Computed example of a mutant assay.
Amino acid sequence: MNLEFDADTEEMRAMVVAFAQRELAGRGDTARAPFDTAGFRRRWRRAGEQGLVGGAVPADYGGSGLDAVASSAVMEALGYGGEDTGFAFSVAAHLFAALMPVVEFGTEEQKREWLPGLCSGELIAAHGITEPEAGSDALSLRTRAERKGDEYVLHGSKCFTTNAPVADVFVVQAATEPSGGFFGLTAFVVEAGTPGLSVGAPYDKVGLRGSPTADVHFDGCVVPAGRVLGTEGAGATVFSASMKWERVCLFAIYLGAMRRVLESTIAYAKEREQFGSPIGGFQAVGHRIVDMTLRLESARLLLYKAARGLARGDQDEIAPALAKLAVSEAAVQLGLDAVQVRGGLGMVGGEAETFLRDALPARVFSGTSEIQKNNVARALGLGSNRRPNRRR
């Protein structure tokens, strides 16, 4: 099992780290300041020029054609090089939750129309799935899409939609057959500015503040039938496929950010003195940092195992769920430990405090930690209503 990257991937990682440190400086965590849309788009265009916002898209449509392993490596480098985890999160959500469904399920015409601009950084995409009454229960969407001739009319609302305040294109899930279960959902590509589509005010979030998030409303929004992704009733399949990319490659951002925070925590423990000695020499502090290292390295192994499976086309449901679960839980605990090592300094604005806030949402989005455990249990054959055969 080769855990090393090839020379091209290592070179690409180094370039992304240098780019992020140079062009994406700043944490983007000004909670009460108005969101700087123009500044966000400037950085987005730079990221597009670097190939970051379309890396996994085939080269024929403007991307770099990276597989899941290389895509994860790039996201890890982005998380390490840039302190604004929210911006990196927006890039990954755009790529894995919105562009990859177009790549895998779009028609040739849809790919040619949308992907080049979305890969170049000219356009930004958002994925609308979560609703006030349908978070973990994605098959209970209340947003409806009614077929009328060659058009669909959408009614309903989405919440917690990443990139919504700046999005040019929305990939939207709606119920075309409310009682159809898995086959009752349909995915659509909807342009911003379409009559009947409106976006609410950006959220003031506890973390990932550099990622603009808002509600999206559909009030008689008319979408041509040619904007359906896949076929009518295939929305759940589209969503499941995008989640595999997101739960693996997006979470590599946290690996990079954890590495950056771990390194700064080690440096702090070597320099900070109490009772005449560096605090890193105290067993309680040293063991805590060892635990931080263990969590990071363990989570990294699970994520790249899942990435390799995704790159091979495996249909494994367990590896992506375990990777997402391990990385998100490790990130929160590592953030808590980084704050604890810094003591009082960890309570004020700084790298550790910011990372902890950015890590907290990781346990919730893309399926909560509890949902990931449910997914793994189901894949293991647990939770069946069938009675086990009992030997007498």
Rank of each mutant, 00 (worst) to 15 (best):
N2G: 12
L123C: 06
L52P: 05
A214G: 03
R342T: 03
A93T: 09
E104V: 05
S242P: 05
L197I: 08
A225H: 03
G117E: 09
L301M: 09
A167L: 11
V216T: 04
C119S: 14
A73V: 00
A311L: 01
R300G: 10
Y152G: 04
A138K: 11
Y203D: 15
T186R: 00
L99K: 10
D8M: 14
D168T: 04
L380Q: 08
V153I: 13
V169D: 02
F96T: 08
L334F: 14
A167K: 10
D358V: 08
V171I: 12
R13P: 06
V339W: 04
A33K: 09
A125P: 12
V364N: 12
E297P: 12
L141S: 13
E4F: 13
M15H: 13
D316K: 07
V248K: 08
A92M: 12
S179A: 13
A330R: 11
G226V: 01
V339P: 04
E263Y: 06
V376N: 02
A252M: 04
G343K: 00
F5R: 00
Q50S: 11
E297I: 12
I129C: 15
P195E: 02
E246A: 14
A70K: 07
D137W: 08
V153F: 04
D29M: 12
P58S: 06
V238L: 06
V238Q: 05
R288P: 09
A192D: 04
R312P: 07
V17A: 01
G220V: 05
V102C: 04
R386H: 14
A323K: 05
L303T: 01
S242F: 06
M1R: 07
M75A: 11
V172H: 01
I124C: 14
T186M: 02
F96V: 08
A164H: 08
G26F: 00
D219C: 06
G210M: 03
N389H: 14
V285E: 09
S90G: 15
S366V: 09
I124R: 13
L66T: 00
Q21F: 01
V206E: 15
T293E: 15
A164R: 10
R288G: 12
G335M: 01
F35P: 07
V206R: 13
M292L: 11
S64C: 12
E370A: 15
G350D: 03
R43W: 00
G343L: 02
G335N: 01
L360G: 05
G344D: 09
F96Y: 15
A31D: 11
L310R: 03
R13Y: 06
L185C: 02
G39I: 05
D337M: 03
